[in-house]
């Protein structure tokens, strides 16, 4: 029992591992990201499953913020006649859409037709979108890209289809999941992630639809067009015009979340070819025609036929009269 000569020389690496901590970090972060990805996937799949069963009244409650936004931002400042014309056309389409069931349920039961609200935005960008609370928005800029009522009807039918297929709810659910996950990951203590998104109107961009949703909406829109007009003439107008306008930036916004325009155009043309009956297209309602001509000129879109629709209709050199 004697005192040692000195403290022992104990090898390193027993109590503290000498492994590079970056390696551990990479492992953990990788595992966590994989887990998160699986979690998001499962939740977004379940969003797709659940969306059709969520009562529309719930969606309306969530959309109160959107309605306020649409009203407050003075987005309905287009002239009254044009709005009335759009409403009339949309209402007619909506009426026809009730004949087409969604899944195995009648369309009127999924989303009550009186809930739909159509807005005409005085925005020069060609764009149209559907968002929560059965709000369908069409920009004036879009009117410059269609030649006939049928062409416009196709776009509106597409947005009606989105609403009836409950895509806004599905994508809201997906967006919420992503936000939730993000706020967990970044440790953000802001619990009102959803509230913030709803309030800021960022919701309009939050709701991006997946390619599958777009194609499903296209299919339903074609069916609706067939049911309404008895033929599919003009269904490809907008896409053709978009396709011709190779100046990307202008329409990127609309197309970015959409599947390649050519692919959709191909689907539409295929459907048109299958429906052999071709009938003359209807003209745009007069109130919309004026705007269409304005926009076609101001956007300097090189779509030859757009100018023919109302020859010499470009007022005041370029006529850049976006509504005040």
């Amino acid at each position: 029992m004697s005192l040692p000569g000195g403290n022992p020389r104990i090898p390193e690496g027993i109590n503290a591992s000498e492994e590079n901590p970056l390696l551990e970090f990479a492992w953990l972060a990788g595992a966590l990201l994989l887990g998160l990805a699986a979690f998001v996937l499962v939740l977004s799949l379940s969003a797709r499953w659940l969306a059709p069963f969520i009562p529309f009244s719930w969606e309306q409650r969530a959309s109160a913020a959107v309605d306020v936004f649409l009203d407050s931002q003075d987005v309905q400042d287009a002239n009254a006649a044009a709005r009335a014309a759009l409403d009339e056309l949309s209402a007619a389409l909506l009426q026809s859409s009730l004949r087409l069931p969604v899944g195995d349920r009648p369309a009127a039961e999924v989303v009550p037709p009186q809930a739909f609200r159509f807005h005409l935005l005085s925005n020069p960008q060609p764009n149209a979108f559907a968002t929560l609370g059965a709000n369908v928005l069409v920009t004036e800029g879009l009117l410059g890209h269609v030649r006939s009522e049928n062409g416009l009807a196709m776009v509106i039918a597409h947005e009606i289809a989105h609403v009836q297929l409950r895509h806004p709810v599905e994508s809201l659910g997906r967006g919420m999941v992503l936000q939730l996950v993000f706020s967990v990951v970044t440790g953000s203590t802001d619990n009102s992630a959803l509230g913030g998104a709803l309030a800021s109107g960022g919701l309009l961009t939050l709701l991006s639809f997946s390619r599958d949703m777009e194609l499903a909406a296209d299919r339903r829109a074609l069916a609706l067009l067939g049911a309404h007009y008895g033929h599919l003439g003009g269904a490809d107008e907008f896409f053709e015009s978009m396709d011709a306008t190779e100046d990307g930036a202008q329409w990127l916004e609309f197309v970015s979340t959409h599947p390649a325009t050519e692919r959709r155009l191909a689907l539409i043309r295929q459907a048109m070819a299958a429906a052999t009956v071709q009938q003359p297209l209807r003209e745009l309602p007069a109130a919309l025609q004026n705007i269409a001509a304005d926009r076609a000129c101001s956007a300097e879109v090189a779509v030859d036929d757009a100018a023919q629709l109302s020859p010499g209709a470009c007022p005041g050199g370029g006529g850049n009269q976006s509504g005040p």
Partner: peptide, 15 residues
């Protein structure tokens, strides 16, 4: 048992 040699302090820790 009889301690024939002291070697010193050893420790083990874990978190």
């Amino acid at each position: 048992k009889r301690v024939v040699e002291h070697l010193g302090l050893v420790q083990g820790s874990t978190v």
